[in-house]
Design a protein around this nucleic acid. Structure first.
Lengths: 201, 201, 201, 201
DNA sequence: TATTAATCGAGACGGTACGTCCGGTCTTCCA
DNA sequence: TGGAAGACCGGACGTACCGTCTCGATTAATA
């Protein structure tokens, strides 16, 4: 179990009767299923995600999954949505140090088991559109927003030239990691520092 | 196990005897299957790629496919790899124009049906190692080599500063595309030009 | 591994938990599949028995068949074994009439569709040992036991000489049928009577 | 290789031009294929007879088989027809000794590797009718004829009663072996003697 | 001696069946 | 009512076989 589900996430399928009748859902099953889903998703991609394997790994049955989510795609969405969102970092005003800190956080995140695989899964057409949307909203967008803030601040105070194509700088930061991973040469632990030096050389 | 479908080796699986023994493969089947695979890939993505549908669309049988490629994944790689790889481009000496041309070729390639999906598949841990190796050798490495040549030439003649981190520049070129695709904002047709301008601003 | 389809155990595979858990098997499928199998067996013989055709004729799927029997051979055995086994017959004390009745029952059984083919399959070295064991236990042994009882009773009361080789008499009863079938001259409907007369001439 | 093909058997498929042109057939292939076919037939039955396995065991290819026989059924027929026919035995006039000798010959034959399996294969509906016909003519009928001759001679000279059902006596001789084999209790080496004693007790 | 024609090894091809796995739905018992 | 177990349909996957076909290389009788 590599990931912890976000604790505040509401129950995926709203109960028809808000007044809960009968036996209540076992919350431990939600967590175990989501964690197992993330593992499977990272290890085998969306296509290789097997509900029977998830149920087995979570110590429950397929039916318990279908009671909570309408299908495979929704389960994957929920699993990704349960990933903890990185907290905002302190800004020091030293842009290079700020970017270094952001990229170090990104690096730690993407190097978690299955992190790169998850990126790969999200790039595939087969993935459910809703799944990709949630992943972007919860994982990709916040990270981009934070990196962009650092870069824009640098442009404002003249650390970067005025005409800088901010979008490409931001995309190049995380993108260089993907490109190197795809080339079979994932960058080493000094990558965040090198990247920050490259941008603010 | 060899999956390559290089244009110089018309039959996907290298024959152990260079002198071909037995009835030769029907090249029309190779072409029809690859074309049908690309269609299916574009229409339904990798997950929706069905060998029986491919065989039917190609007017042949599943067995003829399995004779050529060991399975669905290899077929998909072969289909993408079978598309005409951009020949080595003329160098004009104008580094910015050269990089623009290279990135335009990359852009065309990655926007082909299933191109991004293929990148995603190759980033996943579950992918067959041999498959990833072939993909890197046939697709990723040549492209990186060509882009690197342009960047290094620019460093040599002073168009880029001496201490430039060439690897990060190269990785940032294609990587920015991946990052934008992952963010749900795949760059538009002016991306090669913007990227070249960004590097050689 | 249990193939038996005894009337007292309606589900072919014994459930590990005597208290049945989960959704129970649909008995109508068992019946429909066995009936379709017998039809196919009679029409095309064992070799021409196709599980997909059986499933289609039974209005179900191959998977439902594989849930019940491990394969084609076991299905064929179950089909033949599923037909009503002659109950123990009343002994009249008239040994000749008793033997006649037993052999008539055997005759009816072995003339059922696929009956002789099944005997042939069970004589072959390639047959699954477990399969042969079940066939012997459920089909062959009871019949032999009943015929032997008649013959032994005849020896006891002097209708047959004291030194009679009972085993050979019993084996000769059913065996003569096999020998004639092998010779391409399967005996006619008077065979049970002739055989009884031959033994108790 | 358990069996030797009959040496005098003519080439299975007549050559269209009696004047042999081109490369002549390799007679060794005929023999090797027939022997391998008999082995496979005995080991796996007619259904389990695989031409690719036969070709491999015979050190040749499927095509060489199809050049000689039109298909699987014809190959099996030819293989069975190649079995050496047992020579007629000397009659001593001692009926019991004569029957003993005949049954001993039958016993030796049926105990050869795959002998019982071959009987089983011939009892199955799936076997080609022509195949069964040839087997009967070449193997079963001569044996029956010889045993019948002994029994009829015994009836003629009064060793057996006048009204004896000769057909059932003959069928019971070999049939008892089949019945015991089917019951999982194949008779031991004294069976020919016991059987002769049983008939002429 | 050169030609001709058939065989041999090898393997592709269409078609069909087998046995396994998964997704999504359902039906039963038990807590 | 939820949970565990498992049956159900539909469909895809990968393997094996049959009978036909098309290659290159070989081998002998003929021209």
């Amino acid at each position: 179990m590599q990931y912890a589900a976000a604790p505040a996430a509401p129950h995926p399928r709203e109960q028809p009767h808000p007044r809960e009748r009968g036996r209540p859902r076992d919350g431990a099953i939600d967590a175990a299923v989501l964690a197992a889903t993330l593992d499977q998703l990272a290890a085998n991609g969306y296509e290789g995600l097997s509900l029977v394997a998830v149920a087995r790994a979570a110590g429950t049955t397929r039916q318990a999954i279908y009671r909570r989510w309408p299908g495979k795609a929704a389960l994957a969405v929920a699993a990704v949505a349960s990933l903890p969102e990185a907290a905002d970092l302190e800004r020091t005003g030293d842009h290079r140090a700020d970017l270094h800190a952001e990229l170090a956080a990104f690096h730690r995140g993407v190097l978690r088991p299955g992190g790169v695989s998850m990126v790969g899964a999200m790039l595939q057409d087969g993935a459910d559109p809703e799944l990709r949307r949630v992943y972007r909203e919860r994982i990709v967008a916040p990270r981009r927003r934070r990196i962009r803030a650092v870069v824009e601040a640098a442009v404002v105070d003249g650390s970067l030239p005025a005409g800088t194509d901010v979008e490409l700088v931001v995309a190049g930061c995380t993108g260089s990691f993907y490109a190197l991973a795809l080339a079979g040469a994932p960058p080493g632990p000094d990558w965040p520092e090198r990247m920050a030096a490259h941008v603010f050389g």
